[in-house]
């Protein structure tokens, strides 16, 4: 499905966070969102998923959801958001309880756990899992509802570098198979360059679209040595845009007293 942001703007108690965001995420596209800390990326994602009412503008969803879709707009969270009192299977099943009967649910859970390599951990509790395994559960849960749009807010940032690499490898395959429209928030330029079809750079707060960058290489070819130079150029261009914003944001932070988060 296609996700359309139309002149979206938002403010928290007078703190302007987002302004004039007009953006179309095409069906099957993976759009990465980059931007300095506090520029409103998470806010944008919350608005996209219907968890936050935007102060201005609107978000629309076009097209028909895929067959068997139970929850068109589905998140993968940075902090995993697993229920500690439910097993891996129970956490995955949570999203299906309202819609599927017991048998269908059990089948769907088993299938998703198999696809994400979690079958052996179906009965484990989250506290028994490493961070990487927990996010695997988070992703399995998201896949279980057959989403039309995946909303991922720094899904790998809580993990160590090796685990991140491993998960990225594994799930690139999964995502590409399903061709799910994906909005992927990250701080990591390489991550964005690895998975995104397009990269949207937001300015410092209030977040505006600073630039939109197409990654012209097919995902499978991006790690190939012969493409290293091309990727390096893109990275440099991204970095220029972001570094400017981050530097400016830091200067503003130093000169103005910041309202405290939360």
């Amino acid at each position: 499905m296609q996700l359309l942001f139309e002149e979206v703007g938002h403010a928290f108690d007078g703190l302007r966070v987002l302004e004039g965001i007009s953006l179309s995420v095409a069906a099957g596209e993976t759009l990465a969102i980059l931007g300095p800390s506090g520029c409103g990326k998470s806010t944008l994602l919350a608005i996209a998923g219907g968890l936050l009412r935007p102060a201005r503008g609107r978000v629309r969803l076009a097209g028909t959801p895929p067959a068997g879709c139970l929850n068109p707009l589905t998140y993968v969270f940075q902090d995993f958001a697993l229920l500690p009192w439910r097993t891996v299977a129970g956490n995955v099943a949570l999203a299906l309880e309202a819609t599927l009967d017991r048998r269908a649910r059990r089948e769907r859970v088993a299938e998703v756990l198999r696809r994400t390599g979690l079958s052996d951990f179906a009965a484990a509790y989250p506290r028994q899992l490493s961070g990487g395994m927990k996010q695997r559960v988070g992703i399995a849960r998201a896949l279980a509802v057959r989403p039309a749009v995946l909303l991922m807010d720094e899904p790998l940032s809580a993990l160590d570098a090796q685990t991140r690499e491993l998960l990225l490898e594994e799930f690139l395959t999964l995502w590409r198979e399903a061709r799910t429209t994906t909005l992927y928030v990250t701080h990591n330029l390489d991550e964005a360059l690895r998975i995104a079809d397009r990269i949207c750079v937001l300015s410092r707060r209030p977040g505006r679209i600073r630039g939109l960058l197409e990654v012209p290489l097919p995902v499978a070819e991006r790690t190939a040595p012969e493409n290293a130079a091309r990727i390096g150029e893109l990275r440099a261009e991204l970095w220029r845009m972001i570094a400017e914003e981050v530097r400016a944001a830091d200067r503003e932070l130093a000169s103005a007293r910041e309202p405290v988060d939360g």
Partner: peptide, 15 residues
């Protein structure tokens, strides 16, 4: 109870 869990529940369309 972390609000993120409530947010998660809402995001999956829980009643």
């Amino acid at each position: 109870v972390p609000r993120s869990l409530v947010r998660m529940g809402q995001s999956f369309g829980l009643s």
